[in-house]
């Protein structure tokens, strides 16, 4: 077994393009769920809104990528308002129901035959999506990494993606330490108490939903640009639940929770996969085949999550003292 190669491949995935997509969704969800307490079970819808905005503007309408980023933010804001305005005045669980339904609705809408001309149907939109972005790549044309297995193109996406992710983390840090952050944390703890102190809770919840959705949309933009393809069936509800897993792993309501959670999630997932494949290929395990690895690594991931919840329920970065408190 080549442990060096296993480690390299695992690290490549832990910090890679796919991990970054989840990271943006998790930073957004951290504002919504971690700090404000909004049960948004449709985070994938915001990612899809970002990805499809790029796809439609660049491929269907043949306009600039930069314009599509603006459109992505507008689309995600509209989506947040559509989801939030009817439900945020109601009890918390209504948002959960509406968001999970809306995310599926959106996926079925973009893959429908009726809108095939715009959204590309079940095949989605494939083509030169991020050309303007990749043209800016400053890395030399024959560039290869000595250790990690990113291509020149992927490395450029990873560099910009991580810079943006750190920028958004800084943004969240600034937001939550301000009086605005204090209000949304109060809403998470007890909405009525915050109302009784004269705060318009509805507006704060809507703001949190819009901001979190906007950051998640960047995950979608990155997706379209890096993978040069937008496909409806990649935006399944399980995406949202992986994002929740990431957030709980790292610790909700922690500024660095999403980053820690994302890296650990993908490190473990990729690590389990690589080790298992290697064991099977080298004949150490003969009761499994290579095709089983995909699902078994998720089982191991689930086991890991259960152990985490038992021995460190506050997540990696969480504060146990805080969790011990009665939430109400």
């Amino acid at each position: 077994m080549d442990f060096g190669q296993i480690f390299t491949l695992t690290i490549t995935q832990a910090f890679g393009v796919t991990a970054l997509i989840y990271l943006f969704a998790a930073i957004g969800l951290n504002i919504q769920f971690g700090y404000t307490g909004l049960l948004n079970f449709g985070q994938v819808a915001f990612v899809a809104a970002g990805a499809y905005s790029v796809g439609v503007i660049v491929l269907t309408f043949d306009l600039s990528l930069w314009l599509s980023i603006v459109v992505a933010l507008i689309t995600s804001t509209i989506l947040a308002l559509l989801l939030g305005i009817p439900t945020l005045r109601l009890r918390a669980d209504y948002l959960a129901i509406v968001t999970i339904a809306a995310s599926e609705l959106l996926r079925l809408l973009v893959r429908s035959i009726a809108f095939k001309d715009v959204f590309g149907g079940a095949q989605g939109l494939n083509g030169k999506l991020g050309q303007e972005f990749h043209d800016l790549n400053p890395l030399p044309a024959d560039f290869t990494l000595p250790v990690l297995s990113w291509s020149r193109q992927d490395l450029w996406v990873v560099i910009v993606g991580w810079s943006l992710a750190l920028l958004f983390t800084l943004f969240v840090w600034g937001l939550v330490r301000s009086p605005w952050g204090r209000v949304v944390k109060g809403i998470r703890e007890d909405e009525d108490a915050v109302v009784s102190l004269g705060k318009n809770v509805f507006v704060y919840k809507l703001q949190a939903l819009v901001i979190g959705g906007g950051i998640a949309a960047f995950g979608g933009i990155l997706w379209a640009v890096a993978k040069q393809s937008v496909q409806p069936d990649t935006f399944q509800p399980d995406f949202t639940f992986f994002v929740f897993t990431i957030l709980l792993l790292g610790g909700a309501a922690r500024v660095f929770g999403p980053i820690a959670g994302t890296v650990i999630f993908w490190f473990l997932l990729a690590g389990f996969g690589e080790v298992l494949s290697s064991l099977i290929n080298n004949g150490y395990i003969d009761f499994l085949t290579a095709t089983d690895v995909g699902s078994i690594r998720f089982m191991l991931m689930g086991l890991g999550l259960m152990l985490l919840m038992i021995f460190r329920p506050q997540g990696i970065f969480g504060d146990r003292r805080e969790l011990a408190l009665d939430a109400r």
């Binding site: 937001l175 204090r182 109060g186 998470r188 703890e189 108490a193 915050v194 705060k199 939430a327 109400r328």
Partner: peptide, 27 residues
């Protein structure tokens, strides 16, 4: 309704009205 996972001081500061820092653009 004490806001459990917030400090006593944060509980108090939440009560103050007309805070400009509570506007998202000033935050």
């Amino acid at each position: 309704k004490a806001l459990s996972r917030m400090t006593v001081m944060d509980n108090m500061l939440l009560g103050a009205n007309g805070q400009s820092g509570e506007r998202v653009f000033n935050a």
